[in-house]
Design a protein around this nucleic acid. Sequence first.
DNA 1: CATCTATACTAAATCGGTTTAGCAAAAGTA
DNA 2: TACTTTTGCTAAACCGATTTAGTATAGATG
Lengths: 332, 332
Amino acid sequence: MAKISIKKIAELAEVSKTAVSFVLNGRGDEKNISKATQDKITAIAKENQYQANHIARSLSIGKSFTIGFIVPDISNPFYGKIARHIEQFAEDKGYSVMVASTNEDLKKEKKIIDQFKARQVDGIILASSAPNLSTLNITLNKNLPTVLFDRVFKDSSQSFVDINNEEAAMQLTETLINKGHSRIAFFSTTSYLPNISDRTRGYKAALEKNGITYDSKIHFEIDFKNKKEEIVNAFSSIMNTEDCPTAILFVNNVLASEALWCVNTSFTPYKDQLSFACFDNLDLFDYSLPKVSSVIQPSEEIANQSVFMLCKQIEDTIGKEGIQLKTKIINR
Amino acid sequence: MAKISIKKIAELAEVSKTAVSFVLNGRGDEKNISKATQDKITAIAKENQYQANHIARSLSIGKSFTIGFIVPDISNPFYGKIARHIEQFAEDKGYSVMVASTNEDLKKEKKIIDQFKARQVDGIILASSAPNLSTLNITLNKNLPTVLFDRVFKDSSQSFVDINNEEAAMQLTETLINKGHSRIAFFSTTSYLPNISDRTRGYKAALEKNGITYDSKIHFEIDFKNKKEEIVNAFSSIMNTEDCPTAILFVNNVLASEALWCVNTSFTPYKDQLSFACFDNLDLFDYSLPKVSSVIQPSEEIANQSVFMLCKQIEDTIGKEGIQLKTKIINR
DNA sequence: CATCTATACTAAATCGGTTTAGCAAAAGTA
DNA sequence: TACTTTTGCTAAACCGATTTAGTATAGATG
């Protein structure tokens, strides 16, 4: 019952702690512990259901085999799916994962990172809410292996797993254009995360390429803290105008699903007249009206690469690496 | 840069480690450390950006301030939402949370629990995949504070946060009956988790109460490992019969969304003829056709109570407690 | 003046592992 | 036989905190 330690096993087996440690770590042969002694030790360990104290081990070897996974909101299925895979890949490599949501709050993000650092995580995988590189660098803990994903500053000194946001945004905008839309509103956010900027560029590039003039009157920058209200306002302001947009591009799934809800409750007449498109798929887009075309990020591969890069950093102290993964567009 | 320890601070301040520890833990006054010494110590700590090594602390005090959150699938928004709140409530109490998905695999569940125990988590919050109490007891680690949720054995010796599955299932079934349905199919799972049994009882009770005979021919027990295929088979077998069901009750959101997909791709004629209802809401049910009425569990309150009960167990070694929270039905 | 108490600290044990350096006896070699 | 090597082990330091049991000095009390 009472937890048994290496010391107690040593006493019971009448050998030294050292011997017990060697044997239980499978280094008995290597360390010239006789078969008889090894058997005695393993037998006593089994009998007493010995389980190594991972914390003591961590302290001793200076490694926790724990990684931190930090995202704006773990309940967003986009992050949830990645979390699931991160967890799996991490486990394969002997790591456990602690998760935390920042709620898009940079102060909280910093607090979490510091906390994780104090808890001696070996590294973190982070979708940061930092609006620019210098803020990110203040937030990040130098010397802590880090892989950025989803919100990536390529010119940072950190490793990253990214997608080509600009190109994807272009393609996504063009699926709308190809459906015949020429008046396409754009809902982005006030906080200018790097992915948002890239997506914005992609949107504008697609318009230009197709001879459509960018109109800032139908480009809305939504403050996440007031998103419900601001989305309603945005709809009110455009829906009754002469040149009412026939399609809307959203910079992420949160805005799109909020807008869906808004259209389905308050602006129902527009349900059938609008086409939506956004980044980061949600299952509900299969069923919603308007249907939402979306850019789907390869969550398993993001997780795989993130863990892989992080482990490389942890184990070999390898420098910065970056990778850009392919996205897929779901045209609905 | 290089991490600084209490020992180094002691050297720099020319005092003992003990004094440093006292001061940095805010017990300087209590321990009669002079103001001057306290100032010197805190100054040096600040200057060097001292951050306590949480692992050393854990080893010393025998508490990790970490809890494990173990669910079948963290990417299921039902669990994701709870995770988000668990995380928040845990942080408020100074705990960090490690998450892991069992994939409904009991062996993996046991492995994760053992791993978490080895990592000295102070307790776990668990939605177990154990099919019965004795299996659960084998899986669980005695002496590890545990709170069960979602899949609860009330007669276990563990604390739990539950809902009234039977009653909720009755009510949900009756919303279908009240819409005029009298032939209501039921999709449950082969693995007879306690919540599933309760929900099944609720379904049958509602039928009986309303004078409808339970028909095992339209009660399908789906094997989760083959759910896609088995759902298709189930649909094929009922949809062409004389007394084709007009509504389907699903035992959880996974089956319901799988079935939605199935109806929307392979059995489209039935899209408008069927009513769906299931446990555990998903956002997509607002938009899907058939619309899906659902039982929504109070995720924030589940999280709050789980953390609260767990902390009570950890801190006061209080015995078993159980609570049943209210659910809400969303009638679509 | 002696004693007691408060002040201001510290030495050392402890948590449960890992790891380095080294010792003693047996076996192998010249 | 003397020396080297191998076998089989252990003592003790260490990781970075916490905490108990004390010590030395200064000031208060009788």
